[in-house]
Write a protein that binds this DNA or RNA. Structure first.
Lengths: 342, 342
DNA sequence: GTGAAAGCGCTAACAA
DNA sequence: TTGTTAGCGCTTTCAC
């Protein structure tokens, strides 16, 4: 077997009878190359399967073509959550489409963070970073702010400096729409199974719930608001805690909790939606698997991931001022658990 | 604000009064540097927060310090599966510990594969690749074999060329142990809810099931083997299909299916484990959340991910012959669904 | 429109 | 033990 000569711009140039500069121009799709020369070079590139050396390219061009996706410690434990796999899917697809590679940073220990944060913040390895927002004041945000690394937060932090770029879903209006739908269906004692308020989406969904009630002249009854810890068990327990207060509808801040709620109601001998209507939030697998299928608030997670990449690339290319901040609309999905279809 | 001079080996050298080579040696932890010089350099490195430019390093050293994790198209849709998040966790942790970065490749479309496979197979971007095994003959494997890229398959393909390196869990013996446990508990009509046989783990678990029966003199009854499609609904349906044949125990090839089985049995008015014992496989979240909690076969997924990285690095450093092939033991986890504890 | 040449910041012989 | 030097393969002025 003949040892193939190592493929470089120089080598391709030799084969095509041009200089390495010309090959570089062709490979990078730059104009100002005569059509026939371009074609000749392309042919050689195709035949040899040449791919430019990314390290050399990074070094010379001062850009790596790699985006980082950081899942901080405070959320890494939830990486199994379908939300993240969906988000990661959208992000990775968009990266490839835009010609970038994706590097994943899943932090579980403080040591890992200490070790890697300086490297992440360093311009020469990554061109930009997407950070999944967290509950706590994660050290990653200040680190990135100190650096020149372009970055974008997906979701919002609790304490959000207004000079940060982020994209998020409009949880407030999503929740408000859901509750207003229940109100339109004639429900008046609408309970809410929330998450912990130090979790931003949970807090926002609760705000939306309260807004819907207030604006429709329904008093807010604190007995009808219970923390369900974003778990199915939590939702189950929350529903049990709510039953004595006779709600006629329950709006849960996640599908997972809604599934727990439904199970608790069934176990209590109640029919959903006939006796009590239920509404979830997310529109992930659990919503569709549930029996009855869950009416819920759909987050456009996949599109969301795609947008994150687009916005980040925009930040990388156009500089970082002013910060990009975008809120995406949710969509009300009516299935069987709210009773609208009966 | 003073514009900090760009940090390079040269710059650090100037600050510490040594040449760039010495700084390089210190930074790379090479011996043959006098202790006091080393300390002096380290001090400057610490104070400046210097991190060597990875692109330059890659170019000069002909290695990138990046490992790739490829989730091919045929399995990408299951990325939401807790199995993958756990595996990814193990792999990413091990990468950091070994001083590597991790690049993630989640393929959903053929176009993505066509676009990226040549880049992946190229030595200059990645030092090595971990490929999640797939059902079909995925194009990634032959591509990698044609290249010089070190790679390792996690799990086994159906048609496994014996010159491939892989690590996997011993599904056959895991399943065999589980079924033998049921036999010891006195069960004789043990049914099996399998996955599709073109899925290697499913096929192996079925083999283990049959082995356990044969070796214990129990005839294999094809009526007692039903495909559950690795889904909860599939498990539910499979259990319903099995009931007419009066099994006294059901071994499901995954926890998810086992959960469906349990639900079907409950809905049929049967008690688990009193009327019918149930055993799962995986030991992921569903097993512990189930009511009753599932007895199951635990896969050491996290350790598995860590080992994958270690083996791959070994392949990278020591060359690729002979292929590494390792099978990891499973562990029988006895909870409540099999009746052993009652 | 194309080529020559100067780096990008690092590693690794080889010299000293 | 340390410094000097020659690349690694690419991009990007700057001439032509």
């Amino acid at each position: 077997m003949r040892m193939a000569k190592k493929l470089t711009l120089e080598e391709i140039g030799k084969l095509a009878g041009v200089s390495r500069s010309t090959v570089s121009r062709v490979v990078n799709g730059q104009p100002d190359v005569k059509a026939d020369v371009r074609e000749r070079v392309m042919k050689v590139v195709r035949e040899t399967g040449f791919v430019p050396n990314p390290a050399a390219r990074s070094l010379a061009a001062q850009r790596s073509g790699i985006l980082g996706l950081v899942i901080p410690r405070s959320v890494a434990t939830f990486f199994g959550d379908p939300y993240f796999s969906r988000l990661t899917q959208g992000i990775s697809q968009a990266c490839y489409e835009q010609g970038y590679m994706l590097s994943l940073f899943l932090f579980y220990t403080e040591k890992e963070e200490e070790l890697l944060l300086p490297r992440i913040a360093q311009r020469s390895f990554l061109d930009g970073v997407i950070v999944q927002a967290t509950t706590d004041a994660d050290p990653i945000i200040p680190q990135l702010q100190k650096s020149t690394m372009p970055f974008l937060v997906v979701g919002r932090l609790n304490e959000m400096p207004d000079n940060l770029s982020f994209i998020d879903v409009d949880n407030v209006s999503g929740a408000k729409n859901a509750v207003e739908h229940l109100i339109k269906l004639g429900h008046e004692r609408i309970a809410h199974v929330s998450g912990r308020v130090d979790n931003r989406p949970a807090a926002d969904r609760k705000i939306g719930y309260e807004k819907a009630l207030s604006e429709n002249g329904i008093p807010i009854d604190s007995n009808l608001i219970v923390n369900g810890e974003f778990s199915e068990e939590g939702g189950y327990a929350a529903a049990q805690a709510l039953l004595p207060y006779k709600p006629d509808a329950i709006f849960a801040a996640s599908d997972t909790m809604a599934v727990g709620v439904v199970r608790a109601l069934k176990d209590a001998g109640l029919l959903v939606p006939n006796d009590i209507a239920v509404m979830g939030f997310d529109d992930l697998i659990p919503a569709q698997r549930s029996e009855p299928q869950l009416s819920t608030v759909k987050q456009p997670i996949l599109r969301f991931g795609v947008s994150a990449v687009e916005v980040l690339i925009n930040i990388i290319e156009k500089g970082d001022m002013p910060p990009r901040q975008a809120l995406y609309d949710t969509e009300l999905i009516i299935r069987n658990s709210c009773g609208a279809k009966l």
